[in-house]
């Protein structure tokens, strides 16, 4: 039973940053923006969270800084891809590299260290004990006592599903990707919807980044997003942006992450357990491709 609880907690911790980034990616996916900058947004978010928390001594300021940092990247994306009409793929690649270069440079400039920065002055985002729920045997150990951002991510998934499918904004968002011309003819500028989607994506990725550096650890390391933004992108593409699907896939990746930690306890080298989330992504992609092919065959019969 201990093992299962440990696995579930590991799953939630692994899923949270991927879920937040993927929800952000879902907005841009629906809006018809080919946004591959989530990786960079997570990284900048993680850096700014550590920076803000260190200088202010408050995790709240840290989280706000993370959101602000990721939003800055969103604004750059908007400037280049939407205002100057640079290719979205190129913008995304360049912004990811910019994020990795800028965080490394600032790490060196501001803290005088290379590799990783950790300090007792960095305040972590607290865990939340939910009264009553925490009393439930076993289930209480998973449902209560998680990091605040884990709950925020769960709420964000609900909120995103509501926003995308149940509001006028969501309708416009989906129209911007589905048929921008008809949206334009009904008097809404698709570019404006895309800007909104990118800004929301920045906020969500900023939260995800804050979880990386202030969630279970209190440090920033170079390249600490470690491909989570790419996994989030894969999740978005796999389920065509559907927030429920995104949440399910993020949990699967989290499970692979959690299983990795578990297998490490059994003596499997950390490098192999570390591969699990990426291999899980490949398997998910495989299943998706098979399903799509079968659907196509079904149609032609």
């Amino acid at each position: 039973m201990r093992i299962v609880i440990g696995l579930l907690n590991g799953m939630l911790a692994g899923a949270t940053p991927v879920l937040l980034a993927a929800l952000g990616g879902a907005f841009t996916f629906y809006a018809g923006v080919f946004n591959i900058a989530m990786e960079g947004m997570l990284l900048v978010g993680a850096f700014c969270a550590a920076l803000g928390s260190f200088f202010s001594g408050s995790w709240m300021i840290g989280v706000l800084c993370a959101v602000a940092g990721a939003l800055l990247l969103s604004l750059l994306f908007i400037l280049f891809a939407i205002a100057l009409k640079t290719d979205e793929f190129v913008t995304g690649i360049a912004l990811n590299l910019f994020a990795s270069g800028a965080t490394t440079y600032l790490l060196r400039q501001l803290f005088g260290v290379r590799g990783a920065f950790t300090d007792a002055g960095i305040q972590a985002v607290p865990r939340v004990e939910i009264p009553l729920v925490s009393q439930i045997p076993l289930a209480g150990e998973v449902l209560s006592g998680q990091n605040l951002i884990v709950y925020a991510a769960a709420l964000a998934a609900l909120g995103c599903a509501w926003l995308i499918f149940r509001t006028p904004f969501g309708l416009r968002l989906r129209a911007a990707g589905y048929n921008a011309a008809s949206l334009e003819s009904s008097g809404v500028r698709p570019a404006r919807v895309r800007v909104a989607a990118l800004l929301i994506c920045g906020v969500l990725c900023g939260l995800g980044g804050a979880f990386l550096s202030l969630g279970y650890v209190r440090l920033f390391a170079e390249g600490m997003s470690a491909g989570r933004g790419w996994i989030a992108l894969a999740a978005v593409i796999l389920v065509n942006g559907n927030p429920w699907g995104v949440a399910l896939i993020a949990l699967l990746f989290g499970l692979a992450d959690g299983m990795g930690l578990f297998a490490q306890g059994l003596g499997v080298p950390a490098q192999f357990t570390g591969m699990l989330p990426y291999i899980a992504t490949l398997i998910a992609l495989f299943v998706y491709a098979r399903r799509k092919r079968r659907a196509r065959l079904g149609q032609s019969v």
Partner: peptide, 23 residues
């Protein structure tokens, strides 16, 4: 000036060159 400055400069060169090329 830390050598990491070049990493930032490279990304700026890419973004600005590609954007200005189109523009």
């Amino acid at each position: 000036v830390p050598s990491e400055f070049i990493q930032v400069l490279q990304a700026v060169i890419v973004l600005v060159s590609v954007a200005s090329r189109g523009y």
